[in-house]
Design a protein around this nucleic acid. Sequence first.
DNA 1: ATAGACTCTGTAGTTAGTACAGGTACAAGA
DNA 2: TCTTGTACCTGTACTAACTACAGAGTCTAT
Lengths: 137, 137
Amino acid sequence: MTDQSNQKPLKRGALANLTGCNLETIRYYEKIKLMLPPDRTTSGHRIYSISDQSRLRFILRCRELGFSIEEIRSLLSLVDTGNYSCNEINTLTRLHLTSISKKINDLKKMQQTLQTISQECSNGDTPDCPIIDALSA
Amino acid sequence: MTDQSNQKPLKRGALANLTGCNLETIRYYEKIKLMLPPDRTTSGHRIYSISDQSRLRFILRCRELGFSIEEIRSLLSLVDTGNYSCNEINTLTRLHLTSISKKINDLKKMQQTLQTISQECSNGDTPDCPIIDALSA
DNA sequence: ATAGACTCTGTAGTTAGTACAGGTACAAGA
DNA sequence: TCTTGTACCTGTACTAACTACAGAGTCTAT
C-alpha cells in the first residue's frame, strides 16, 4: 500500500530530483560538512541513505526559512550530539527572528524613501529629474 | 564664512573619512568602473576632484537604498551621457521598488512561520523539540 | 634625517552556491 | 556483446559586493 519510492537509497541525481535541490548544491553541502559523507558504490558513486535524505530536507527547510549555513551548522550539531534542549533550539530561532525583523525594517525604510522621491517625479522627457537630485543629495 | 574643507581635492584616505566609505571600497568602485579613474600625483597617488566626491556620494546613497551595483551602473550611465529622461529614471526606481516589496514579503513569510513554530516551544530541558520537528517536516 | 603614517599594487578571503571541463560508470537497446 | 547516451566523478572557476592583507614605495612632521 505505502509508496516506498522515496524510502530507497538514491544516487545524487535522484536525490536532487526528489528534494528539488540543485545537483551541485548537494556536493557543496558535503564539502562544507553540513551533509555527512555518504556511502559509495565500489566505483565511487554516492549512495544516499534515508537518513541522508532527511538531513538534506532539514537543511533545505532551514534555508527556506532564511537560516544561514552557520546557523544550520549550529542546529545540526545540537541535534547530532543529541545533547540539546528545546530551550537552546528556541534561543537560536529567536535570534534568527530578530535578524529577520531587522532586515524587514531596513527594507521598509528604503521602500519609504524611494516611494517618496519617486512620487515627486513628473515622468517628463527632460533630464530634469527629482530622483537624481534626491540621490545626489 | 563657508567651510571649504569638503570642497578640496582629496587623497583616498581623506575621501574615505569624509564619506564614511571604506578605503578599499573606493578602489573597488574604480576597478569595476563605477568611479572614473581619478587624477594622480606624479608619484601615483590618487587625487579626487569635487566631481569625484559627488559621484561617490551618489553611489553610496544608492547603495543605502538597496540598488545593486548594476542598477547604479545603469543610473550613472544615463546621467553620464546626459541623454536621460526623468521617465527612464523613474522606471528603474519602480523596478527596484518591486524587488524590495518582494524581499519584504519573503521575509514576512519566514517570520510568520518561525513565530508560529517558536510559540509551540515548551522551552523545556529535554530534546523533545517541536521546532526541530517542524524543521524536519 | 628619519620615524611613522599614508598610499600603491596585486591577491585572497567572505556567503551560498552554480557551472563548467575532462574523464569514468552504468543501463538499455541492437 | 557492443554501443550509445545518460549519469556520475573530480577539481576548479565564476557570481555579488566588498574587505583584508602583504610587501613595497611615498609623504610629512619633528
